[in-house]
Computed example of a mutant assay.
Amino acid sequence: MIKQITVFFIPVVLCYAVLEWSVIIIPMSYDKVQQQITTKPDAIKVMVLGSSQMQAAVNPAFLDKVTVNYGSKSQHHKEDNHIMEQSMVRFPNLETIVFELSYAHLEIPHNGKDFWKNTIYLKYYNVNAFERNTYFKDKLVFLSSPSMYAKKFTQYYLNDDDQEEYNQYGYHTNNFKGAFSDLDYNDEKITLRKFRIRDRESLANFAINTPFFYDMIRTAIANKKKVIISCIPTYKTYLNKRNPAILKRRDSILEDIRLKFPEVRFFNLELDTITFRARDYLNENHLNPDGAEKFTKKLNQVLND
């Protein structure tokens, strides 16, 4: 009986070990961020939070002050808040926190307590976003989203895809392949392209998210951190398709923050269609590394003011 259990158990353990090893290779941005925050916590002066838009837009290599960019796909203010609250104390020389407030941010529902990326935060950032005690399995990346990681595993080992390259800050430096590059950055073709944009209003989410965001600002200020609220550049076709009601509510909050928190600074390049052209974008609302260089250098000026 013991022999049978052993024969079954060892392959299972080896299988999980191989899978965990493989996915450590795949999310290299998280691995690089982990190295940065664990080896040089005293050097970090700036913390960037937000979604994939912030992840793609801020390349810390172009900043004078050492910066950790925690931005990542599908990340909302709830995850931002967990990261901020649990990480601030680890960076004794942290000066500034950069928040994101994109066009529809306040009308998107928060992710649930079992959001698959909670495993990433725990494994790589030592941040518990589960809102409960954690267990061994909570750090098993593959189990957090088996279908997604199985696909990535296949792409990495079997399809001979171009390998992603990351700098020491976890920024994806060769991230140029996207909808716009597929169209050769041709304005006419891009104008005709169909794309998804959130245009469904949600006053219920707005009523929850707005005070939550205000509390995040208060927490940062209470901990003597400077606050910058950022709005990422978006392509002209994206700007034209925004829901005016959603936009008006978001803009009203930006103005209210100006009145309630005079110490907060704003870095809003959402409407900049002069500096940022088609060749600076992956798609309608994500910059590529060229666009990120422009954006980050402008952010550098704000941080140095």
Rank of each mutant, 00 (worst) to 15 (best):
R90A: 04
K139N: 04
I26H: 12
H77V: 11
V98H: 05
L158V: 11
K65M: 12
K297P: 08
N209S: 09
Q301E: 08
T275W: 00
F176V: 03
L49D: 00
C15W: 11
Y149I: 01
F213G: 13
F276Q: 11
Y16F: 15
R90T: 02
Q301I: 06
R277T: 10
K236Q: 06
F9D: 09
D290F: 03
P92Q: 00
A104Q: 03
E107R: 07
E20L: 02
Y125G: 10
Y166H: 14
A129S: 15
E20A: 05
S144M: 10
G178A: 02
V66N: 10
Q36D: 04
D199N: 14
T273I: 03
K65V: 06
E131L: 00
E188H: 09
D31W: 01
I83M: 08
V227P: 02
N93M: 03
A150Y: 07
L158P: 08
N209W: 10
S144I: 08
F130H: 10
K123T: 14
A222G: 10
V12R: 08
Y235K: 04
L247I: 04
N81L: 06
R218D: 04
Q34I: 01
V18N: 11
S74W: 01
Y30F: 11
T173W: 03
N81S: 12
K194T: 06
V58G: 04
R242S: 07
S147R: 12
F267V: 14
L271N: 15
M148Y: 09
L192P: 04
K177I: 03
R279I: 03
N223P: 02
V127Q: 11
G170M: 05
Y124I: 11
L254D: 12
V98E: 01
G112R: 00
N285I: 07
Y235A: 01
I120A: 13
G71R: 10
A278V: 00
N285F: 01
D280W: 00
A292I: 10
D187V: 12
F91W: 13
T39P: 14
D162F: 10
N81K: 11
S74M: 02
N69R: 04
M28F: 07
S181G: 00
I2G: 09
P92E: 04
K65S: 11
H286F: 03
I120Y: 14
I2Q: 06
L49H: 01
D280H: 01
K152C: 11
F8Q: 09
N288F: 01
E95Q: 15
K189R: 12
S87T: 12
L259R: 15
D256V: 07
M28H: 12
M84D: 00
N186G: 07
L282V: 07
S147W: 10
T191W: 01
